[in-house]
């Protein structure tokens, strides 16, 4: 074997190892999570864990019901989705189809900047500006609510939704558009009837990825949703999310205690949720191709 071939061989193997590393880590993390998380079911029945209505992890005996936390995460995510999806898709349509080149460049840079703001900064801004606003606008006893969390999270989901959706719109073949114009369709009719349906799978993937980002977000929601573990009756009450619970309580939990295992079990629930969302997004992305 020549030196060249040897070099080639090593580089190839090195890249192979790097490629496999991420899968290896995911498997390791998953195994660890399962091992630590499933231990909680020695003391709590799985159904009581998922459908239990009270979360008092440090009482004797501890009450470990995560239903309020699941609902907390869901309502914040749902709120963020309702706000960010229409705005995000409309923004993508504008950038891909309507905006002149110059504005397009500015908008794209702006969206990338939005994605670059650390979540703790968004949370801090939300705490001092948004929370008092929500409180006074809706005449609530406190502004630390699911709605405040949803609005801030919508800002975080938007960059993902816009850039993936814009990509999807952009990759619709030019001939579709030309065909629509040739048949006498207006620009809006073309967008609404031809481009959006043609890009639909990519847009669904964009939405899913955006939601995936929202459901896993921790810092900002912990700062502005009030963290009260009650099943929310509306979006204007404080909620406690799965992520915030792990972050807030991990420091206290004595390693090897029931509480510690319960937090890992919450981790499994979160992992499963975001896994499902990512797989759905992936399915839609591949359908497009």
């Amino acid at each position: 074997m020549s030196l060249r071939q040897i070099k080639e061989f090593f580089v190839q193997k090195l890249i192979l190892i790097c490629g496999l590393a991420s899968i290896f880590f995911v498997v390791l993390i998953f195994l660890f999570l399962t091992k630590e998380g499933l231990a909680v079911f020695k003391t709590v029945r799985p159904l009581d864990f998922i459908f239990g209505k009270s979360w008092y992890p440090i009482s004797e005996p501890a009450q470990l019901g995560i239903l309020p936390l699941i609902f907390g995460s869901l309502i914040v995510t749902l709120g963020a989705a309702i706000i960010s999806i229409p705005i995000g898709i409309a923004c993508a349509v504008y950038i891909a189809e309507i905006a002149p080149l110059k504005i397009k460049e500015i908008l794209k840079a702006g969206i990338e900047l939005l994605a670059a703001i650390p979540s703790v900064v968004l949370g801090f801004i939300g705490m001092v500006t948004l929370v008092p606003w929500v409180k006074s606008t809706f005449h609530l006893p406190t502004g630390l609510t699911a709605l405040s969390g949803s609005i801030i999270l919508a800002f975080m989901a938007m960059p993902t939704i816009v850039s993936v959706a814009e990509d999807a719109l952009y990759s619709v073949p030019k001939s579709y558009k030309e065909g629509a114009f040739a048949l006498g369709a207006t620009h809006w009719q073309t967008i609404y009837r031809v481009l959006l349906p043609a890009a639909s799978s990519g847009i669904v993937a964009a939405v899913m990825l955006g939601i995936g980002r929202v459901i896993g977000e921790t810092m900002a929601v912990m700062m502005i949703t009030g963290n009260a573990a009650v099943i929310p009756q509306s979006i204007l009450v404080p909620v406690r999310t799965l992520t915030a619970t792990i972050a807030a309580e991990m420091g206290e939990a004595v390693v090897g205690s029931e509480h510690y295992f319960a937090l890992f079990a919450i981790g499994i629930v979160l992992f499963t949720m975001s896994f499902i969302i990512n797989v759905t997004a992936d399915l839609f992305l591949h359908k497009r191709k």
Binding site: P68, L144, A228, V237, A248
Partner: peptide, 8 residues
């Protein structure tokens, strides 16, 4: 109370 806000 479950509705108590837990601040960090």
């Amino acid at each position: 109370a479950p509705g108590a806000l837990l601040l960090s």
